[in-house]
């Protein structure tokens, strides 16, 4: 049988900074899985609410709005600083990139501290009524994800200090930003469910 080479890939670049890299699709898969988990939590919340005679239960006030609303702003801001970081890599401004990463981590840490206070202000423990159980679980779930995103970005920042990234080699920044945007933006639906649903519905 005749055997022929018909395609040569020898001169393809081995750097793949965008969606042609499998890892970009892998992180997208992680985001889809996590989003499904969050949908399951939200469905659980509404199912329990549907079955409850009163929601929140008698004698429990909806949690206060100030801190979580500030968190929304801070998290949106952190998505912007991450975006700025990506631009900096593109323009080879490596010091600014490091500043962008650490600013994002700083914003996330602020949100984490606010979240700690929000837990105190929920006004209901997790082990007395199912309302408390689901609210604590949803908030805790997001809390843990914020810690992971911040820890991962911290490492990206440290690699930035070591000048690891450049315009060809930046897939780590791209996928970290992708995951970060998921974690920060998913707070908006969770915020609406936990803080506004007991008021509106």
């Amino acid at each position: 049988m005749r055997e022929r080479f018909v395609i040569d890939v020898g001169d393809f670049s081995r750097f793949n900074p965008g969606p042609q890299a499998p890892v970009w699709w892998g992180i997208l898969g992680l985001v889809v899985i996590e989003a499904t988990v969050i949908m399951a939590f939200i469905a659980t919340y509404f199912y329990l609410r549907l079955m409850a005679p009163a929601w929140p239960p008698e004698g429990v006030e909806p949690p206060p709005l100030l801190l979580p609303s500030i968190s929304v702003v801070l998290l949106l801001g952190s998505s912007m600083t991450m975006q700025w970081g990506s631009k900096c890599i593109e323009n080879e401004q490596y010091n600014r990139f490091v500043v962008a990463m650490f600013t994002s981590v700083g914003l996330a840490c602020t949100v984490l501290m606010l979240r700690w206070q929000q837990f105190q202000e929920l006004g209901v423990p997790w082990d007395e009524h199912v309302y408390g159980s689901i609210v604590w679980t949803i908030m805790g779930f997001h809390f843990v994800h914020l810690i992971s995103a911040a820890a991962g970005t911290l490492v990206v920042g440290i690699l930035g200090i070591k000048r690891y990234f450049n315009p060809q080699q930046k897939i780590g920044v791209v996928v970290d930003t992708l995951y970060w945007n998921f974690v920060s933006l998913v707070w908006i639906p969770l915020y609406l469910v936990v803080y506004w649903v007991p008021r509106w519905l």
Binding site: R2, R4, V6, I7, D8, G10, D11, F12
Partner: peptide, 8 residues
């Protein structure tokens, strides 16, 4: 009666 391949 022919097989084709990628090189590189």
């Amino acid at each position: 009666n022919e097989r084709q391949f990628v090189s590189g």
